[in-house]
Design a binder for these strands. Structure first.
Lengths: 225, 225
DNA sequence: ACAAAAGTGTTATAAGTACACCCATGG
DNA sequence: CCATGGGTGTACTTATAACACTTTTGT
């Protein structure tokens, strides 16, 4: 990626993907350890790479996402394009950043086992980041927080079936504030997004919780909070 | 722009700017007549051009905006990046689209006089558009409508001093629906965005209107409608 | 029987919506 | 004096916010 860029007269395009999920009651970001100078190996970066001449930018993002996670049917949306001249020390690269949400339960299976240098980091204790990836990740975090309030994207963070408390926790973790249980349920039901399964979650030393699923698993604009 | 691109192995970057204003009670878009094949001269496009290797994408957008309008201090925000493989018949060009808002009163002075092939078109009767610019302009229109409801960007469409009715009309024109005068004023005042000047607008055959100005002329997130 | 999370309504406050008349001016 | 847009308040409806106890399970 690095040296080859010098010969271009114009900027070239890359994508970077901020992959988010919830693990251990924390919002986490998938990062890859940097190897190239000038970034010592204490630096990490969101996965990304150049857009090929025969693929759309969206497809480049999908390709890189699939490579890194192995998971399919992931929520992916364009975030913002970062085009400062010196954002990449290896050359003039403009990055179209995306953000992706993957369900908590799919997570432990893939990724971290193949590469020792791919790792989840909690959003609130990120390592040193290469390029302008700090800015990119912050923007992804903001977008996620806003979008949670006016859309149903939470579906892409949860397993197929889940309890109302799990759903509420996801909101609380991302928004960083506690929500009232009764008001939360009232609101969620009023927007008709959930379908009650007839299953319940047993096994914990308390009253079992009803399991729900999303009735629509495509992005919908609905005001939730 | 055209032939030179073939030699690049990767996509190159351009910006396109959707410049919007209100003229004659209509939301209008600034377009430039196309000359190059395969677009006959019935095709128009939003102004744009390649990003130079030594300028940021934001600066490229500002530069092109200044060239086309001659106006300074214009509201400009990144809209979305369009990266389909075949969006540009001249080569593999990824476009970072921006949208700009310019005040109604600055408008008549510049632009249209210098170039016969630069022209304002009402949003609701656009000509044939080159590239994917129809999609881009639609996206700009959507963004503007949404943003009007949760921010103060209206300031960038109005002259320094304006009447409440002028402000309300701007909202109505962009949102394509009538608003209640009293409720509109109540809301606008409640968010503390306006400052009453001690001037009034005379000259029309009716009671003169008080002139207001925005107290903050930078983008603010406030829920207005 | 106890600990732990599930589940469930009501009241108060704030925000949004609908609606009609008088006022000040220029011609 | 009349046509035109400017300016103002109230009642109703809907949404949001605060708040506590009973239920069901596993150990």
């Amino acid at each position: 990626m690095a040296k080859t860029l010098k010969k271009y007269n114009y900027a070239v395009i890359a994508t970077d993907i901020v992959i988010l999920t919830i693990i251990k009651q924390k919002l986490q970001v998938l990062l890859i350890k940097m190897k190239k100078v000038p970034y010592s190996n204490n630096f990490w970066a969101a996965p990304g790479g150049l857009v090929k001449p025969d693929e759309s930018v969206d497809n480049a993002a999908k390709r890189q996402l699939a490579q890194k996670t192995g998971v399919k049917n992931i929520y992916l949306e364009q975030l913002y394009t970062f085009g400062d001249v010196n954002r990449d020390p290896f050359g003039r690269v403009v990055s179209v950043a995306y953000f992706a949400l993957i369900p908590s339960d799919n997570v432990n299976l893939k990724t971290t086992k193949d590469y020792g240098d791919v790792q989840w980091f909690p959003m609130d204790s990120l390592p040193k980041l290469a390029y302008d990836h700090k800015k990119i990740i912050e923007k992804a975090n903001n977008r996620l927080q806003k979008k949670l309030e006016y859309s149903n994207i939470a579906y892409s963070l949860l397993p197929k079936e889940f309890t109302l408390t799990q759903l509420q926790r996801s909101y609380e973790i991302i928004l960083k504030r506690r929500l009232d249980k009764r008001n939360f349920r009232k609101k969620i039901f009023s927007v008709n997004l959930l379908k009650k399964t007839n299953k319940i979650q047993r096994g914990s030393a308390n009253r079992p919780a009803a399991l729900y699923e999303f009735s629509k698993k495509t992005a919908q604009m609905v005001s939730i909070l």
